[in-house]
């Protein structure tokens, strides 16, 4: 009688073990299948990306120096007039370095401690927040704007990708975001800090906004390519 219950226990243990073995086997084989491509691919992509960025930066430098050479190239007096116009157009397009006074705006995600059940989405920076700050600066008369050393021109977009921001189609920026704007420091700072203004509405969510007036702002030039595949000047 005692022996019999003992065997019963053994059988039970055997059954449980078999079950665990089966589960274990399926899990490990599952992991092995999923893991190898998803780890290898991002690493391979990261290497590709680094290479691509390196050659992009090289070419950007080349474009900068070629634009400089074009400016310096000798020419008669009839060329001087065109060059002058070219200079002016470049300034308006954002292809030249500019200096002057302005404001510095630093943006970072909220430092609020999230309560359980709250939507974390409310407390991180969104592209819309950055857009409305840029818009406010433009409305207050900013002559030029850069964000994390990327000059913003007419065709620049601001896009959120996870915690980072993509601007000028190919430049990924990570927080904190430092925006410089060239213009009257008083006007620019007041426009942002105005009651019911952008800064106040962002601070409701605890998003960290810091506005500082600066005497010396160095605005980097836009150094991307100027390629128009669709638009043509009308005759």
């Amino acid at each position: 009688m005692k022996n019999k219950s003992f065997y019963l226990i053994l059988v039970l243990i055997g059954l449980i073990m078999g079950f665990i073995l089966a589960v274990q086997f399926r899990m490990t084989s599952n992991i092995a299948q999923n893991e190898s491509p998803s780890i290898d691919r991002p690493i391979a992509l990261a290497q590709e990306l680094d290479k691509a960025k390196e050659s992009r930066d090289e070419q950007q430098k080349k474009v900068d120096s070629l634009r400089g050479q074009l400016d310096q190239a000798a020419g008669g007096p009839e060329l001087a007039r065109v060059k002058e116009e070219l200079d002016r157009a470049r300034k308006e397009a954002g292809l030249t370095e500019l200096r002057g006074s302005g404001v510095e705006v630093t943006l970072n995600d909220s430092n609020n401690v999230l309560q359980p059940g709250e939507n974390p989405n409310f407390y991180v920076l969104h592209d819309g927040d950055v857009l409305s700050i840029l818009n406010e600066l433009k409305a207050a008369g900013a002559k030029a704007i850069s964000i994390n050393d990327q000059r913003l021109i007419s065709t620049s977009e601001v896009r959120c990708i996870g915690p980072t921001i993509l601007v000028n189609k190919n430049q990924r920026l990570s927080p904190p975001f430092v925006i410089y704007a060239l213009g009257n420091p008083e006007t620019l700072a007041n426009a942002l800090k105005m009651k019911g203004g952008v800064v106040e509405s962002l601070q409701i969510w605890g998003i960290q906004v810091d506005v500082k007036k600066v005497d010396k702002v160095v605005m980097p030039p836009y150094s991307g390519g100027l390629v128009f595949d669709y638009a043509k000047p009308s005759k």
Partner: peptide, 10 residues
């Protein structure tokens, strides 16, 4: 450059 600056009709 003028096209980029938005100074011409396109």
């Amino acid at each position: 450059v003028r096209m980029l600056a938005g100074l011409v009709t396109v």
